[in-house]
Lab assay of single mutants.
Amino acid sequence: MDVFMKGLSKAKEGVVAAAEKTKQGVAEAAGKTKEGVLYVGSKTKEGVVHGVATVAEKTKEQVTNVGGAVVTGVTAVAQKTVEGAGSIAAATGFVKKDQLGKNEEGAPQEGILEDMPVDPDNEAYEMPSEEGYQDYEPEA
């Protein structure tokens, strides 16, 4: 019985440690998101679009440190934060509304985080759909 109880105690310690790591990862992701939003706020009209992409990228980098179902929630929060940063930029006159959601080359930025393969159960990952990809044929 002692062996059984000791095993359960060790398992509990492992769960607590994993929860603490997840909590730490979420806190880091939130900190990076805040950094990115402050970065966007300090940019001029020309830099705002690039700044919004930076927020998304920093958040995406930190999301990889967070495991399990938390990833889905962090990704949703990050996307809403990026959308909010863009709205703030438009409201303050840093950028025109028609410039939001495009990178410096004018290509749409939507789907940055949505296409990231995420499995809350950590069982399997699927690649994003290939609808947006084109076949590449090298020139002879």
Rank of each mutant, 00 (worst) to 15 (best):
1 M>D: 02
1 M>N: 00
3 V>R: 15
3 V>S: 04
4 F>H: 00
5 M>P: 00
5 M>G: 02
7 G>K: 01
7 G>N: 14
8 L>T: 00
8 L>M: 02
9 S>T: 03
11 A>Q: 00
11 A>L: 07
13 E>D: 01
13 E>V: 09
16 V>H: 10
19 A>C: 06
19 A>K: 05
20 E>R: 02
21 K>A: 11
23 K>M: 15
23 K>V: 09
23 K>Q: 02
23 K>H: 03
27 A>E: 01
28 E>V: 06
31 G>E: 02
31 G>Q: 03
31 G>A: 09
32 K>D: 01
33 T>L: 06
34 K>R: 13
34 K>Q: 03
34 K>L: 14
35 E>F: 13
37 V>D: 00
39 Y>W: 12
39 Y>N: 09
39 Y>S: 03
39 Y>R: 00
39 Y>M: 02
41 G>F: 12
42 S>A: 14
42 S>K: 13
44 T>P: 01
45 K>P: 00
45 K>M: 15
46 E>D: 10
46 E>V: 14
47 G>V: 03
47 G>T: 12
48 V>R: 03
48 V>N: 01
49 V>G: 05
50 H>W: 13
50 H>C: 10
51 G>R: 06
54 T>F: 15
56 A>H: 12
58 K>G: 00
59 T>K: 02
59 T>C: 15
59 T>Y: 00
60 K>W: 07
60 K>C: 07
63 V>Q: 02
63 V>A: 06
64 T>M: 10
65 N>Q: 04
67 G>L: 09
67 G>H: 14
68 G>I: 15
70 V>S: 01
72 T>K: 06
72 T>S: 01
72 T>R: 07
72 T>C: 04
73 G>N: 12
73 G>V: 10
73 G>W: 13
73 G>I: 10
73 G>C: 09
74 V>D: 02
74 V>E: 02
80 K>V: 04
80 K>G: 08
81 T>A: 11
82 V>R: 07
82 V>W: 01
83 E>R: 11
83 E>S: 09
83 E>W: 03
86 G>T: 04
86 G>K: 09
86 G>I: 11
87 S>W: 01
87 S>L: 13
88 I>K: 02
88 I>R: 02
88 I>W: 05
89 A>M: 12
89 A>Q: 03
90 A>N: 12
90 A>C: 14
92 T>N: 05
94 F>V: 06
94 F>I: 12
95 V>N: 14
96 K>H: 06
96 K>C: 08
97 K>I: 15
97 K>D: 13
97 K>S: 09
98 D>A: 13
102 K>L: 02
104 E>V: 02
105 E>P: 11
105 E>R: 06
106 G>Q: 15
106 G>H: 10
106 G>M: 12
109 Q>K: 07
110 E>W: 11
110 E>L: 01
110 E>Y: 10
110 E>I: 06
111 G>V: 03
111 G>Q: 00
112 I>Y: 05
113 L>W: 03
114 E>W: 10
115 D>H: 05
115 D>F: 05
116 M>D: 15
118 V>E: 03
118 V>C: 08
118 V>G: 08
119 D>Y: 14
119 D>E: 11
120 P>L: 03
120 P>M: 12
121 D>W: 03
122 N>Q: 15
123 E>I: 13
123 E>S: 14
123 E>W: 01
124 A>K: 13
124 A>T: 14
125 Y>C: 06
125 Y>P: 15
126 E>P: 14
126 E>H: 10
127 M>F: 13
127 M>W: 08
128 P>Q: 05
129 S>A: 11
129 S>P: 03
131 E>P: 13
131 E>L: 05
132 G>F: 08
132 G>H: 06
133 Y>R: 06
133 Y>A: 10
134 Q>P: 08
134 Q>G: 12
134 Q>H: 03
135 D>A: 03
135 D>V: 04
137 E>K: 03
138 P>D: 12
139 E>T: 03
140 A>R: 12
